[in-house]
Design a protein around this nucleic acid. Structure first.
Lengths: 299, 299
DNA sequence: AAACCCACATGAATTGAATTCACCTATAAG
DNA sequence: CTTATAGGTGAATTCAATTCATGTGGGTTT
């Protein structure tokens, strides 16, 4: 015979035990005293245990009843409390993303509003730093990293971004200024902006343009890609950077690629997460959205 | 608006959370998966909190859902356990009575069956000793004491037994033997049995019979009333004891009172209990019954 | 590509547990 | 003696819980 514990009857019992009164229990439970009486009788009949001595106009717990009440009182209090808290709980999931400052600044932040509108029940927390993140030990769902792939702890899933194209970029004013930039040779008249963390630098670029004589020991140097891009926007020189990171500036015309959009490809960014959590909707949704956006950007 | 926590819905949620499956939860709860789905939806709608992400053919707890499940899981487990134990609980109250060995042996034990048949849901535990009992510290409901009243701790209720009559008693054979006993003077031919804890002894008796010359330094001595009575039953002599304690022997003719049933009265026994527990049915029932029996014995 | 599997969702209909209602009993208090 | 009141009982009623029939949508198999 299949039975579930008679929760409603136990609830009535617990209230009567706590208040030593069927009538008061009925008040608390918003029912009639008769309902309480029935439920407790049902409980006693089902388990063959007398839970209350019926004294005139009163009830007194039996020893069995007292012990049982002590156990279930705490349990019901806990359910009540947790359920009350539920009505006050945040109504969303939190997604914690860690990324390099440049990717965070240049690419992710300008697009986060798009992800949020597609996933209104997910709050994104974005941490930007160059620190190494331990996905297991820290409450980080996704870590977007840049640089040579390193060995990861077992259980880490590493997805590679599509290849980035690295090209020289500068402000439109510089391109069309006193020393217009039309060919690689035109670069000798301009300051080179070096992005020191970029996997592809001017030295690599020159390997593909051997006819060009640039003094790559000269120029401005930054250890943050977004700063190199910012300097280029300000007309300080020509930077060699990722089309991906400069997408917004190119679209708004603050930067141009005077020598075209073709250049060396590099796979610098990886998307890191724990396999065990890969299918959580908030994580999976973010991943799908991000790689979708990356595809759109390279089309 | 008056609401009680939706216990059935929470129960369905807890099972689904624990099993990560509506279908498995339905199995465990002996309902259809549809019922589980409805209950969880009801819970989410009522509190405006999404508890599960619906993934194709699966469900994954949200952060809120996980936290809630952790709280209510423990509570439901506790209710289950306590309720299962309830089916195995003793079905009665325990009444613990402490009394002097003589009262326990002579009066109480022969009558306990009567109390039990009137109160089948009360199990009586009878402790007989001369030890002093601390009603507060020990699990003793009632303490029946003999002797001078002593100061009791606050909160102790002391009820006095009706007065006992103390008379000489002996076996019928002794009364009708070679030295028949008809008058107090006839006692000089017989051995006196002394009950050393009795509040009234042969010396007190002789104060009321000054014409009688008994050598009260002679005879048998016992420090238990029930032993003195037993010696008298065996024809070893004449004892001076309480009619109350000898009631059964007198009724069965094993003892007789050759000089009649009139004698010194003494109030030796008291009924001691805690005021705070005086109205517990098991205690009140025992008290009422005992004093009723005492009245019958003195009629 | 089509068919099948299967897990959750939905709305209307049905069921059965919970509750009410009407009346009873039994003390205690006035 | 009358009144108040707290729990008890059984039949009738209510309504929360559940079922039933159908839908949706990925993933797998043929």
């Amino acid at each position: 015979m299949q039975h579930r514990v008679p929760l409603k009857a136990i609830q009535a019992f617990e209230a009567a035990a706590r208040l030593s009164s069927f009538a008061h229990a009925a008040e608390e439970l918003f029912v009639t005293p008769s309902a309480v009486s029935h439920q407790i009788k049902l409980l006693e009949d089902q388990f063959g245990v007398q839970l209350f001595h019926r004294v005139h106009r009163a009830v007194v717990l039996t020893d069995s009843g007292r012990r049982y009440a002590e156990e279930v009182s705490a349990a019901f209090a806990r359910i009540d409390l947790a359920t009350r808290e539920l009505g006050r709980t945040e109504k969303s999931d939190i997604l914690t993303v860690h990324a390099t400052p440049s990717f965070a600044t240049q690419w992710l932040m300008p697009r986060l509003a798009r992800f949020s509108s597609l996933n209104p029940d997910v709050d994104v927390r974005l941490n930007a730093s160059t620190d190494t993140v331990d996905l297991v030990a820290e409450t980080v769902d996704i870590d977007i990293r840049y640089g040579m792939k390193r060995l990861q702890p077992a259980g880490t899933m590493v997805l590679t971004f599509p290849p980035e194209t690295i090209v020289p970029m500068c402000s439109p004013a510089l391109m069309n200024g006193p020393h217009p930039i039309r060919t690689p040779d035109d670069l000798v008249h301009h300051t080179l902006i070096h992005s020191e963390v970029c996997l592809v630098g001017w030295r690599d670029w020159m390997r593909q343009h051997r006819k060009v004589k640039l003094d790559i020991s000269r120029g401005l140097r930054f250890d943050r890609s977004f700063m190199a891009l910012s300097a280029a926007v300000d007309g300080l020189g020509v930077c060699l950077e990722s089309l991906l990171l400069a997408q917004r500036e190119l679209e708004t015309g603050r930067l141009v690629a005077p020598l075209g959009l073709d250049g060396p490809k590099v796979q610098g960014y990886t998307f890191n997460l724990l396999k065990a959590r890969a299918e959580l909707p908030k994580i999976r949704n973010f991943q799908d959205w991000l790689f979708g956006e990356l595809e759109k950007a390279s089309a």
